[in-house]
Nucleic acid binder design. Structure first.
Length: 279
DNA sequence: GCCCAGGTATAAA
DNA sequence: TTTATACATGGG
């Protein structure tokens, strides 16, 4: 295994914040010391171990995989420091929020994987989502050294709800199959979503049985890197109203997705501020 | 045991 | 058109 070392990073890259914030569900921290942490995960059919030291990242992979897969996956061409500064200037609360997760990046994940992952996420919690996806990969992904790839959309399209019973996804199983079939049968055009604007993507994705506004929005942000997208769940709305009363998420414009990540992380760190008495 | 989870489809107001 | 409820399952 080759090693790509010496990627200099600024404060805008933190593995914990990026890989454990609910945008991706297949990464785990396998080692942690005072000086560094190592994370392992599988994406685009490849297993990666990645190590973060004080000011340096180490990718345990070939030079080619680094250049063709992981450089894009971690969005390394983009200067998050600059975007964070832009957002921080917009308001005091947002400036405060950016401090709590300055190292968050928006990953460029596979669109089908993001769509399926956020279908699994509905009315669910992160530990269980991870478990379902792990069993899903073991059941019908391809075995590779160290694990299983995310199941191919063509494979899932041929499966039935009964086939998926072992992953214990509950009522979500039918949605996964509906999504896979819609894609394979070209009822939903992923390439067109990639090329056209976010409004088309919202309309197109919500043709799928089981895809509502929230799953569509998360898929557009994490699977298509439409950075003007924003998550819409109840918690997020509560946080928005608390920090920015009367302000619409769209007003963050192009960086809305990143702003939402900061705000969401902030609201998690200050859960007590966002609890509302039952009415 | 009990509550509820980064929702959505469907039924009932 | 807006507001409830069921849904499958298990983490905490």
């Amino acid at each position: 295994m080759m090693t790509k070392t010496g990627i200099q990073i600024n404060k805008c890259f933190d593995l914990e914040q990026t890989l454990n914030c609910g945008q991706s569900f297949r990464w785990k921290e396998i080692e942690k010391t005072e000086e560094y942490s190592i994370w392992e995960g599988i994406a685009f059919g490849r297993l990666l171990q990645i190590r973060q030291d004080e000011d340096e990242l180490t990718f345990f992979c070939s030079q080619q995989d680094y250049e063709t897969v992981w450089y894009d996956y971690f969005d390394l061409a983009v200067n998050y420091e600059e975007m964070r500064e832009t957002l921080a200037k917009q308001s005091e609360p947002l400036k405060e929020a950016t401090k709590f997760a300055p190292g968050i990046r928006i990953l460029r994940q596979d669109a089908w994987e993001a769509l399926a992952s956020f279908l699994f996420s509905q009315n669910n919690n992160i530990p269980r989502i991870k478990g379902i996806i792990e069993r899903f990969a073991e059941l019908c992904g391809e075995p590779i050294d160290g694990g299983f790839t995310f199941p191919a959309v063509e494979t899932v399209a041929k499966m039935t709800v009964k086939d998926l019973e072992p992953i214990r996804a509950g009522f979500r199983a039918k949605y996964i199959i509906a999504a896979a079939r819609a894609i394979v049968e070209s009822k939903v055009d992923l390439q067109a979503i990639r090329e056209k604007d976010i409004h088309f993507g919202r309309y197109e994705l919500q043709k799928i049985h089981g895809v509502g506004p929230k799953v569509a929005e998360c898929t557009l942000l994490y699977g298509f890197h439409k950075t003007e997208a924003f998550p819409l769940d109840v918690w997020m709305k509560r946080a928005m109203n608390k920090l920015f009363p009367g302000k619409s998420p769209e007003e963050f414009g192009k960086h809305a997705g990143l702003a939402q990540q900061y705000i969401f992380h902030y609201s998690r760190m200050h859960a007590e501020l966002f609890q509302t008495p039952d009415t």
